[in-house]
Amino acid sequence: MSASTREGLRGLLSRLGLLILGGALLLFGLVLFADATLDAASVGLGVAGVMLLYALSRLYAVVAALAGPALPEQARSLGRTKAELRDEKKRLLRAIKELEFDYGMGKLSKADFESVSATYKARAIEVMRALDGASDLHPELAALLREREATRAGEGGENAHTPEGAAPASSGASSEAAGLASSAADGDASSESPATSTRTCAACSAANDDDARFCKRCGKELAA
């Protein structure tokens, strides 16, 4: 549940609480002063009264909204909002986790795993870059992405979505993104492999750096 949802819910609950309290007071007053007997039917009537109050308050809100100050026209949002990007980031990271899991369970061939996982990771980096608000990329990463894009276009792979502004420039913001992607990709395993190129240990299927000679988890020598 996001913060906004939770807040909305809290607001709803507090308002509901007030209404119920009001209704209870009303009933109490009726019992005390008007000699009403408190049976199921009068409770029902009390609930009805509370509901009526709620409906009236909403009706008032309609009028208030219409009579309120004219707000600026809602801009047609071209870019995506941060929330959406965050969602997409999480979704991608989860997809990567799940993919590694599938690979670990032996459902994917190594080649398939690598190509799919690379596309996901590239996309995750792109999203995280957009989230950082940086229009620039680490030069090495930019080169890597371009190269990957080219190979992917060649094989007609999935998700052919180019990071549109892969302009080379120097900034540290996106290297953080790269780190994020890889650590998230490994899920609970802790690993610092670069995002896009890994070697998988035959013994424990941990992801290792491309140039590693020994597995960083189990220490076995990696096949050439």
Partner: peptide
């Protein structure tokens, strides 16, 4: 694209819930 009308529409939806709850009770 008027936020006022959008808001009013949402509140009207809530109001119809309130009224339906009233009728049900």
């Amino acid at each position: 694209r008027s936020p006022r009308f959008v808001e009013a529409g949402i509140q009207a939806l809530y109001a119809s819930f309130g009224l339906a709850a009233f009728a049900s009770s």
